[in-house]
Structures are given as structure tokens and as C-alpha cells.
């Protein structure tokens, strides 16, 4: 028509512009992984290196003992942690001195600590578990750092496992976001200042910091942010300075201090997408239409 010029004499039906058009056939990345990528970019922009968290099976040693979690701690209960039938037993770490240091700091009288004063059992330490937190890998990386202690920033976003009853907010597996800063003479003020900067990158302003207790950090702080929709302060993360009882047995110098913080990947994602049941976000029950029609995950865009 264009070539012949007949269009000039033809009459055309009017278009209905009040329509959406034909959406293209397309693939999609998973909404949770899109948020994960946003977090990764924040970490990269702040100079963090991704940790090798592709290791779901851990020994009790790396998952608990190195983190100064005593062997009778409730987290090591069958009710909370997946223990393994096969392989049931791990090998001790290659560094025998580290093994002995860890035993000593639990039993007491080492590295300036009175310890927990109980008989520490090697067999308990070698029971295998599905890691309950990625901090097991952070401990492994910090131990490696002790060979050449220099300022380091590490992060990971990966799966962790808890033997929990499944409900709207709990699954037996979920993702933990974790950051670690090791530096000489780093301070609690640095942690607070850094946390504000970190959370500002995801659009969260005006955090508050509440003292709390974690077995492997002291001081420990829960991070709270104001949630406009809920009209209250909600906990968005946990943080602290790793205890000397964890770091000094590794051989890290006394003034090399380590800041750490963590949060779940699912929780901020659920808040952002208005998802009320975690099974609608992770696992096989997720609706494919939700995956395919999900917009870009811009964390800086009004997450709260």
C-alpha cells in the first residue's frame, strides 16, 4: 500500500488506544533472586568479596564451636538443627592448635575468658549438621584470614537450614544475608555508622540500635527501622562485634576486630512485595504467574 500510494485513498478503522497491547512472550528471573542481586550489588559497591558459601554440610565445630556456641546451647538441640545420619561424622580441622584452642576457650581459662566451664567433647563437635547460618563460612574465612591478617570485607547470601515447624513465616530453609568487616581497631561507632550507610542503600533511613544478646558477638545490636505501613518499629537485622573468644583462638591479632551483621533475604522481600506467606516466595508452591509478572526489584525504591 505504501509503495502504490493507495493508502492515501483508503479509509482505516480507528485504533483503540485504550488497551494494553500484546505482551511479549518472555522468560523471567525469580523475584527472590532479583532482590538477592540488589543486595549483591550493594555489597560489591562497598568493596565486599563474596564468600564460598557453597557448602551446606558443616561440622558442629564450624557451625557452633568456633563461634563460641556452647555444646549445651538450645540452638544445638534436635528441635532446631538438622543433624545428619549420613555422613554422621566430620573430620577435625587440619589445624590441631586451633582445635585445642577452641576446646580451651569453651572449657575456660583461655584468651582472657573464664569460658563456659563444661567438659567440651570432640565427638559432639564432629557431628555433622546442615548449617544453621552462613556464619559458619564466615568463621572459616576468618580463620583463613589469620594467616595474613589484613583489612577485609566479606559477604554472602545463601541458604541456611533450621529444623522448624513450617508456617506462614518459617520454612526449613531460607536465605541469610551476611556481611563481615575485619579491620584493626574498628569500633562499635563504625558498626553503627556503617549499618546506617548500608541500609540507606536500600532506602531505609533512621535506623535505631538496640542492645541484644548473641553467643558470638559482644556488643550485639538489633537494627530497627520504622515501617510506615505497619506503623511501628520493626527489626530488620542483627549485628555485633565478634567475641574475642571466637577470634583469638584462630590466631587473629587482639586488635584485629571484626564486625558482622545478618538479615534474612526473605523478610525484606516479603515486605517489599506484600507477600504474607513465605511459601508464596520460596519453594515449589510459588505461583509461576507471580514470577513472570514481577517487576524489577529496586531496593532503593520505597521498600518501607
Amino acid at each position: 500500500m505504501i509503495a502504490s500510494g493507495s493508502w492515501a485513498k483508503a479509509s482505516f478503522k480507528p485504533y483503540n488506544f485504550n488497551s494494553e497491547g500484546v505482551l511479549p512472550p518472555s522468560g523471567a528471573l525469580h523475584p527472590l533472586n532479583k532482590v538477592r542481586e540488589e543486595f549483591r550489588q550493594i555489597f560489591f559497591s562497598m568493596g565486599f568479596t563474596e564468600m564460598p558459601t557453597n557448602q551446606y554440610v558443616e561440622s558442629g565445630f564450624w557451625n557452633f564451636d568456633t563461634l563460641f556456641v556452647p555444646q549445651q546451647h538450645p540452638a544445638r538441640d534436635l528441635q532446631d538443627t538438622f543433624f545428619l545420619k549420613d555422613p554422621a561424622v566430620a573430620k577435625p580441622p587440619k589445624d590441631k592448635e586451633y582445635w585445642e584452642n577452641t576446646k580451651a576457650v569453651h572449657e575456660g581459662g583461655a584468651f582472657g575468658s573464664i569460658g563456659y566451664r563444661y567438659p567440651w567433647r570432640g565427638e559432639e563437635s564432629l557431628r555433622t549438621v546442615l548449617r544453621t547460618h552462613t556464619t559458619a563460612v564466615s568463621a572459616y574465612m576468618l580463620k583463613k584470614l589469620a594467616a595474613d591478617p589484613k583489612p577485609t570485607r566479606l559477604f554472602s547470601i545463601d541458604k541456611v537450614f533450621r529444623n522448624e515447624a513450617v508456617d506462614a513465616t518459617h520454612l526449613a530453609e531460607f536465605h541469610q544475608v551476611e556481611g563481615v568487616i575485619a579491620d584493626y581497631d574498628v569500633t562499635l561507632g563504625d558498626l553503627i555508622g556503617f549499618m546506617e550507610q548500608f541500609f540507606e542503600k536500600m532506602g531505609v533511613h533512621g535506623c535505631r540500635f538496640k542492645p541484644t544478646y548473641n553467643p558470638y558477638t559482644e556488643p550485639s545490636m538489633e537494627i530497627f527501622a520504622w515501617h510506615q505501613g505497619l506503623g511501628k518499629w520493626v527489626e530488620i537485622g542483627n549485628s555485633g562485634m565478634f567475641r574475642p573468644e571466637m577470634l583469638e583462638p584462630m590466631g587473629l591479632p587482639k586488635n584485629m576486630r571484626v564486625l558482622g551483621w545478618g538479615l534474612s533475604l526473605e523478610r525484606p522481600t516479603m515486605i517489599k512485595y506484600g507477600v504474607s506467606n513465605i511459601r508464596e516466595l520460596l519453594g515449589h508452591k510459588v505461583n509461576l504467574d507471580f514470577i513472570e509478572s514481577n517487576p524489577a526489584a529496586r531496593l532503593d525504591e520505597d521498600i518501607f
Binding site: 523471567a28 525469580h30 541458604k159 526449613a172 519453594g283 515449589h284 510459588v286 509461576l288 514470577i291
Partner: peptide
Amino acid sequence: SEVMPLTL
């Protein structure tokens, strides 16, 4: 489309 089923 990407899916994320469970590991267990």
C-alpha cells in the same frame, strides 16, 4: 522462567 524449589 526461574524457579526456586527447596534443597531438601
